[in-house]
Write a protein that binds this DNA or RNA. Structure first.
Lengths: 252, 252
DNA sequence: CCGATCAATTTTGTATGAGAAATAACGAGC
DNA sequence: GCTCGTTATTTCTCATACAAAATTGATCGG
């Protein structure tokens, strides 16, 4: 692909950053999206530093730092004389929060979506089960509070979605496993953002409160089996919603 | 902590890179290890660019690029005027291959080790079960070949360990899920390197061939239940070995 | 005394030019 | 045909200068 396409699309991204931080990362973002979306194929050589930075109208340093970010995420690898090339897909850090977000900002293939939720169906119920065993009173209180806020504001509002995030965050913390926390929160955030972004506030899903309530009750009661089951349902519902959002966005 | 400690330890790392690639990343490595090992606490401010680069005896650009790598992995965040500070732990990308490796090069706490294998016990058996359903003949052939090589060379040799890697790689590919592949291979590689590095070729584990054979037979037969069970045993054995290696290294 | 607005200072961010290291490709010599 | 040095290209490093951002403090008005 031509580097000009990138320049052309500069600044058109909705930038679902949440908090504005590291504006400069937009270059890495654009390049990253171009890569994960397949506009650069694995093995393909990128232009040299001078040429690329000229096309993008940025300095060489800025371009290099963007490449550093991408190489830290396993998307590219560069060596002297050879140049910088897009890494093979299996080297990509697919679970990196940014990479995930980049993937889901475009139109992820059905199989990718299926794969991601395959992972979620395995991990998240187990996290809920662990949370049921290990939760402290504080976690239960936070989940309860978040649930109340969800009921009050609904998911159509920013406050409601924040409460949803809080609910899951508290649950994950209760699991006490930092790896599960990183994994699940990253995946959840990327997907949640997708649904919100693709279907703007569309009340497509059925009332999510009862399902959350089931999870809450099970975890609060310390019933790991019930927690697992309830969370499985929740993930399945999320899968349904996400698929719906993506299909609506791709075929308007 | 003082930045001088870093300079002092420069070049002492065994650099388990495998292929030499991006030597320059050693700065990021040192800093990353310093962070995940707790020598910098979350929230702590790093020195300014000029001062830090002087201490490390590198240029400002080199130091900045190292910071970029770390920020891409969620370890630090920098803003103008405020400076660069170590991010809160929950922001770290714990499943990033490099971060994992950095964590396990030091002495990870028992609870961390427990947490990681908690994740593995959930994910890897499921990956094996999926592989049993989806494996193609090619995957079986590769696993078979790798198994033969393992039997011939044993895990005490480099060739044998390579065969072990190949075995698991083929199995993961058979699962057909890129997220499972990234997750498992990253985790596996970091831990495998730890055991090899900590206990140099020590024949601590019982013969791993039969356990691998069980997995192979189940996957080849397309029996997902048996695959799940066999892989569970394999993970448990790996947990035992890793714990042993780490304890041996910490209390010589 | 309190508040707000505006300027100053500090820190990261960007730009640019010059050169060093690394490595793949080429060619000379045997 | 094979080995070994040479060359060319590309990333990597360095040094310096300037721009942008954001916190701090000071100044002014109420």
């Amino acid at each position: 692909m031509s580097m000009d396409d990138l320049t052309a699309s500069k600044g058109f991204h909705p930038a679902p950053d949440g908090k504005r931080l590291r504006i400069h990362g937009s270059v890495a973002r654009d390049l990253g999206i171009a890569i994960v979306s397949g506009r650069y194929s694995p093995g393909e050589l990128l232009l040299g530093e001078i040429e690329a930075s000229e096309r993008l109208k940025i300095s060489r340093t800025a371009y290099r730092e963007a490449l550093r970010i991408l190489s830290a995420k396993g998307l590219v690898e560069s060596r002297p004389k050879t140049g910088t090339k897009v890494s093979a897909r299996f080297k990509w850090h697919m679970l990196d929060p940014d990479v995930l977000q980049w993937i889901f900002e475009l139109e992820p293939s059905d199989s990718l979506l299926e794969s991601l939720f395959e992972l979620r169906r395995v991990v998240e119920p187990e996290a809920a089960a662990l949370a049921a065993k290990r939760r402290a009173d504080d976690h239960v209180a936070r989940m309860d509070k978040a649930l109340e806020a969800m009921k009050e504001h609904t998911l159509a509002t920013e406050a409601g979605r924040q409460a949803d995030q809080d609910f899951h965050a508290a649950l994950l913390e209760a699991s006490g496993n930092p790896f599960l926390i990183t994994l699940t929160s990253g995946v959840g955030a990327a997907v949640a953002w997708t649904t919100v972004f693709k279907q703007r506030h569309a009340p497509l899903r059925r009332d999510p409160i009862p399902d959350h309530r089931r999870v809450f009750d099970a975890v609060a009661a310390g019933d790991s089996e019930a927690s697992r089951a309830a969370m499985t349902d929740l993930v399945n519902m999320a899968f349904h919603d996400t698929r719906g959002a993506l299909m609506a966005a791709s075929a308007p």
